[in-house]
Amino acid sequence: MKIISVLSFLFFCANSISGRAAAVDTVEVVAQKMMKPVKSVILQPTVREQDKSYPVLYLLHGAFGKYDDWVKKVPELQQWVDHYEIIVVCPDGGYNSWYFNSTRDDNFQYESYIMEDLLPWVEEHFPVKRNRKGRAISGLSMGGHGAFYLATGYPEIFGAVGAMSGGLDFRPFPDNWNIKDRIGNFNDHPAAWNERVAVNRVERLKPGQMAIAFDCGTGDFFYEVNLQLHKKLEQLEIPHQFTVRPGGHDWAYWSNSLEYHMVFFHRFFSGSTE
């Protein structure tokens, strides 16, 4: 068994859309390559039908964050889980892992953890859909990068991807957020950097293969790299939704943004968007 422990608790909110709030579980699943348990928060609709499977959204945190950021910072997420009947999984991505396997540190193998350990465990223990039409991935900042990195690496697994203020090309920031500690510095290892940035990896996708939505505030330091990705997708004729709104790199922006992402993914899961 890859699970170490499960800690379950319920949150209730009197002002939810549906009159309820989601059931919230904190779980620990062993990351086999890192040989350690890693926590995740999993939110489910409060009322679930027997023998029914639900779509699942993997929602990633940002740099310097952790697994419970989303549920603590955006309590409305619990209401949206109930309203849209989506299971949401918020994994821990370690201290600035960027959600790929480090070439320099065996303790940072978070791509393998999510894809080889967490995702199969979730599908074994929770009533989630087990096909790409029922799986999506998104995140903020570093988590937005992680979402695109994993979605483009596993298009047979994920049918939809999103990013909020995503670090979708981190090459303009070679000394920030421990990236060089994970894959070496840019001057000595340019191939490792170029292979991982979303602006290059989207070339792997075929037009219409994946539902894509990302956004960024005009006052965000990642605004230009988001605009760059938008232009690249236009050149590749890959359909996507790119939204620009006033705002910076902060929770006030992400709280607002997540509501739009939940609508987008609900529409995807319902077959209303490609």
Rank of each mutant, 00 (worst) to 15 (best):
residue 13 C to R: 04
residue 14 A to W: 11
residue 18 S to G: 07
residue 18 S to F: 14
residue 19 G to E: 09
residue 21 A to E: 09
residue 21 A to T: 14
residue 22 A to M: 08
residue 27 V to R: 10
residue 30 V to L: 09
residue 33 K to A: 11
residue 34 M to F: 04
residue 34 M to R: 01
residue 35 M to A: 13
residue 42 I to F: 05
residue 44 Q to I: 10
residue 55 P to I: 06
residue 56 V to L: 10
residue 69 D to Y: 01
residue 71 V to G: 12
residue 74 V to Q: 13
residue 74 V to M: 09
residue 75 P to G: 00
residue 80 W to M: 10
residue 84 Y to R: 04
residue 94 G to C: 15
residue 94 G to E: 14
residue 97 S to H: 13
residue 98 W to G: 11
residue 98 W to M: 09
residue 105 D to L: 15
residue 105 D to I: 09
residue 107 N to W: 08
residue 108 F to I: 11
residue 108 F to L: 14
residue 118 L to V: 00
residue 119 L to R: 00
residue 119 L to M: 09
residue 122 V to Y: 13
residue 130 R to H: 12
residue 131 N to V: 15
residue 132 R to E: 04
residue 132 R to W: 15
residue 139 G to L: 04
residue 140 L to R: 11
residue 150 L to E: 03
residue 154 Y to S: 12
residue 155 P to Q: 00
residue 157 I to K: 14
residue 157 I to P: 15
residue 167 G to L: 11
residue 169 D to Q: 09
residue 169 D to F: 01
residue 170 F to W: 06
residue 172 P to T: 14
residue 191 A to W: 11
residue 193 W to Y: 03
residue 197 V to A: 07
residue 206 K to M: 15
residue 210 M to T: 09
residue 211 A to K: 11
residue 214 F to V: 00
residue 217 G to Q: 03
residue 218 T to N: 09
residue 228 Q to P: 13
residue 229 L to E: 02
residue 231 K to M: 04
residue 233 L to C: 12
residue 235 Q to M: 10
residue 236 L to M: 14
residue 238 I to K: 04
residue 238 I to D: 01
residue 240 H to V: 08
residue 247 G to N: 04
residue 255 S to G: 06
residue 262 M to T: 08
residue 265 F to R: 15
residue 270 S to P: 06
